[in-house]
Design a protein around this nucleic acid. Structure first.
Length: 295
DNA sequence: CACTTGACCTGTCCGC
DNA sequence: TGCGGACAGGTCAAGT
């Protein structure tokens, strides 16, 4: 499930290779993965060049020379893998059993031919998509982008911003609050569980009942956990790979996610799996006590 | 209006 | 071994 660190890792990989390349063709075998009218593809996608590869929350954004931007959301099982034409990029090669030598595969939904290589959008569960929108006013006009909360890893992201957004949702669980992309951008299930554990907060605690001290810890742990994951190439749970087809290693360092039944690394208690915000949720019941409202 | 649940999909795993 | 059902969880739409 690509979250901010996984999408950022993909972005960093693509940024190395795509800028300056022209889009020669685009094809799909699953129309929902590529909801772009033929006319727009013809006029604003084909022969346009990629200017850069950006990210906002979990969304990849590629401004093109046509004044339109490609938007790509990986959702749950999306992969965005680049294979250079022979002799270009990756110099030094990659393992011979690499994913990129076996593309397209049965999960390939969209194939984009570029001047120097091919970009494959694979998506087992077909939740993700590739869209094309006008670059002008994109962040204001796009329904998702216009509501998206701040980028948590930017220097300008302060505790005051985090706290004010959390306090707007006092009656929802703290886990639902940090998963809410309008509160802050980029947190998904893995980093929600890991950062709540690091801050010693029970995920079902109502957001309005989390003390300021614990909220400060949470603000810090969200940033630390996601920064660490980016440095490790993200989390490869089932599907995730980066732009070169490589897996990330963050989950080796995860303390509670998918660790039910194992001892808590802090107190030795048994990690449990519960349900919170409609998702599988991993906690140490000893380290993360539920705060109940005063009756 | 605030919040929760279901739909979108496919592959894997578990129990019978 | 086969089969049905639960489960995985990002986002939007529908429901409470």
């Amino acid at each position: 499930m690509p979250e901010l660190p996984e999408v950022e890792t993909v972005r960093l990989g693509l940024q190395e290779f795509l800028p300056g390349q022209a889009i020669l063709s685009i094809n799909t075998d699953w129309a929902n993965s590529l909801p772009i009218a033929d006319e727009l593809i013809e006029n604003y996608l084909l022969n346009a060049k990629v200017e850069s590869v950006k990210r906002r929350g979990k969304l990849i954004i590629m401004p093109l020379t046509s004044k339109y931007s490609l938007l790509i959301h990986l959702k749950m099982t999306g992969q965005l893998v680049y294979r250079p034409n022979s002799g270009k990029g990756f110099g030094g090669g990659h393992p011979s059993d690499s994913l990129i030598d076996k593309l397209p595969n049965k999960s390939t939904r969209v194939t984009i031919k570029l001047s120097d290589g091919i970009l494959f959008f694979n998506d087992q569960r077909k939740f993700g998509w590739v869209k094309l929108e006008k670059s002008q006013g994109l962040y204001r006009n796009n329904a998702f982008l216009s509501k998206l909360g701040p980028e948590p890893l930017e220097d300008s992201y302060t505790f005051e911003l985090f706290n004010a957004a959390i306090q707007r949702h006092p009656n929802t669980s703290i886990k639902a609050a940090i998963l809410d992309q309008t509160v802050l951008a980029g947190v998904g299930n893995i980093y929600a569980d890991e950062s709540l554990f690091a801050a010693r907060i029970h995920p079902l605690t109502k957001a309005g009942l989390v003390s300021t001290i614990k909220l400060k810890r949470l603000y810090k742990s969200i940033r630390e956990v996601m920064s660490l994951s980016i440095s490790l190439g993200g989390s490869s749970d089932r599907n995730y790979v980066d732009a070169k087809g490589n897996k990330g290693s963050y989950l080796k360092f995860a303390k509670v996610f998918r660790k039910e039944g194992s001892p808590c690394p802090e107190c030795g208690g048994v990690i449990k799996k519960i349900r919170a915000a409609g998702r599988g949720t991993h906690i140490c019941p000893r380290c993360q006590k539920l705060v109940k409202p005063k009756s």
